[in-house]
Design a protein around this nucleic acid. Structure first.
Lengths: 338, 338
DNA sequence: TTGTAGGCGTTATCAG
DNA sequence: CTGATAACGCCTACAA
């Protein structure tokens, strides 16, 4: 690969010292340089199509202008919009985004975390948190800049940006209650994520508030937010929950698993069972039937988290805020009267 | 952020000089170092959780161990699997992946290209090529390592990994012919992409080979591979193509647009019109009706392209290969007899 | 087998 | 306002 021009070459062409060229090109220091000199340097830079070597700069400034993003799996349709929000904000601020897929494996997560640190990332955005994740707590305490996305930790001491899980499920459950359902089941998400647990709690709470008992038999738990686990849990749920007429799935992937099992058992949705998801993933509006679900502003969650991280980079030691973004129930065809 | 430990600190702790520590930790040079010394250095490194600073190393070796990936838009479900394939291969080789979204904007593409070069990426994987893209031809000629993914250029001189568009469309058209269709339309992709054009040509060719005339009225062209453009072109197609009983869409996003217009006009699929897509994107098997489409090995395309790039990094000046991966028609419910 | 010197491209610091 | 010098963390000669 042809080597890009260096600052030295630009300086030579402009007939000045490297230092001067550096100052001339850097907006923060260009005020110290003669206007005519600046013009000459800029001209030289343009002619050579000079681009500062971000790596060399990082070595000196101890900043890489890059951010590590930890995801479970980029191919889960939940994450691309989040990543897009992150990238748009970071790129506008001159930062590069480094994405890593942990596949929900704690060892892999730790390895990727180290590997990103070795690349001197200036901070982390993590969508992979488990409730008791020591990694992020410790990193945060050690002064590593971390913002959690979509999920948080049990202790609220690491900054985070999440959706309003509690309110989303409350809306979903109330929607079903209003339709006349009283035997409403829940396929819960993994207990070791705050999303899984918060949604389960909100489900119980909302039924409680309405004076409807939330029987244990109406709840089954998926081991992960996947179609397969959703299907497994749904089979258990249908076996144990008599008279059930509606299901609240902890997210859309799990809802897909529910639909699979409904089909498998010859149950019609929404005729026999109503179903609500969570996330409003792409294409769930085109399923058979179109899925009633809770819309989450994924792009904004990513963008907001990136902004929060940039704020923290600019002002180290800021208190660990936690932002919750509002969600909306999107009623579609998968829910109807019992 | 607490600074990660440096080689110097490791050396101090092990009681040796930095150079010795460097050699001890580097497998390529560790043979020059006393075994006992190596053990002491490695112990020190482990205790400090030392990770070599990839950036500083890159400054010296003039390699950043990172690869730039140019995509139109990560939220298009086509790309996550490709990116996943790329990342898995690159990560295994110690490379980091830098992703950039061009949004199909040539200026943005050029800017991102420069910005990635400023980060000293060792090469590029680009899924954004337009048939006449000068950027990649010129870069390639100047010795920049580029491998094109999914799309190629008119001149075959830049290495590429693509799916067998020609065969995929041939399978789709023959499938419809075998079902008894003779008035088969095509909603073509943008003419300035090789995928768009190759698929259009294959459509014409296959009909020709079967002795079925490919009338101009049976073809409409979408300006981009999007649902909206697919819908627009489909409206034009239905207005102009009399007696049409089947449509081959240039890809699944366009096929979604076709379905929208079918619904809009009260046409039933497949009752009134059969439809075939291309790509087998996630969830098209769950549409109403489940979409007959051509399955493309996206993950493998990404992985293969990454491997090709690694090969080229290892042996500069390798001739510009072009790899085509096979595709399979997946018949579902959106196609039936006329 | 180990240490010394120099440099990768840039910027911070000091002098002029 | 501009230049000289050193340093960031690592690696590659070369010397000992």
């Amino acid at each position: 690969m042809t080597n890009p021009p260096t600052l030295k070459e630009v300086a030579q062409r402009a007939g000045v010292h490297v230092t001067t060229a550096s100052r001339a090109l850097n907006p923060a220091t260009s005020s110290l340089v003669n206007a005519a000199t600046i013009r000459r340097v800029q001209a030289a830079a343009r002619e050579l199509r000079y681009q500062p070597n971000v790596i060399a700069r990082g070595l000196k400034t101890a900043r890489s202008m890059s951010i590590g993003v930890l995801l479970p799996d980029l191919t889960n349709p939940l994450f691309p919009p989040i990543v897009r929000g992150i990238e748009d904000v970071l790129a506008a601020a001159g930062y590069t985004t480094l994405i890593a897929n942990t596949d929900n494996d704690p060892d892999r997560q730790a390895a990727l975390f180290d590997s990103l640190r070795a690349r001197q990332v200036d901070g982390f955005l993590a969508a992979t948190a488990h409730r008791d994740d020591r990694l992020f707590t410790e990193a945060h305490q050690q002064g590593v800049n971390v913002v959690l996305v979509n999920r948080r930790l049990d202790q609220a001491d690491v900054p985070s940006v999440v959706a309003d899980d509690q309110d989303g499920i409350a809306q979903a459950v109330r929607h079903l209650l209003e339709l006349g359902h009283t035997r409403i089941g829940h396929v819960a998400g993994p207990e070791d994520t705050t999303t899984g647990r918060a949604r389960l709690r909100a489900y119980r709470q909302t039924l409680d508030d309405a004076g409807v008992p939330a029987e244990a038999a109406l709840i089954a738990t998926a081991g992960s937010f996947t179609e397969a686990e959703g299907a497994r849990a749904t089979r258990a749920l249908l076996d144990q929950a008599h008279g059930i007429t509606a299901v609240v799935a902890a997210n859309d992937m799990i809802a897909l698993g529910c639909l699979d099992v409904f089909t498998e058992r010859g149950l019609h949705c929404p005729g026999d069972l109503s179903l609500v998801g969570f996330n409003d993933m792409p294409f769930v509006d085109r399923l058979t039937p179109p899925l009633t679900t809770v819309r989450v502003p994924h792009y904004d969650i990513g963008a907001e988290a990136a902004r929060m991280l940039l704020d923290r980079l600019a002002s180290p030691g800021l208190p660990a805020k936690s932002i919750t973004l509002p969600v909306t129930l999107i009623p579609r065809t998968s829910t109807t009267t019992p």
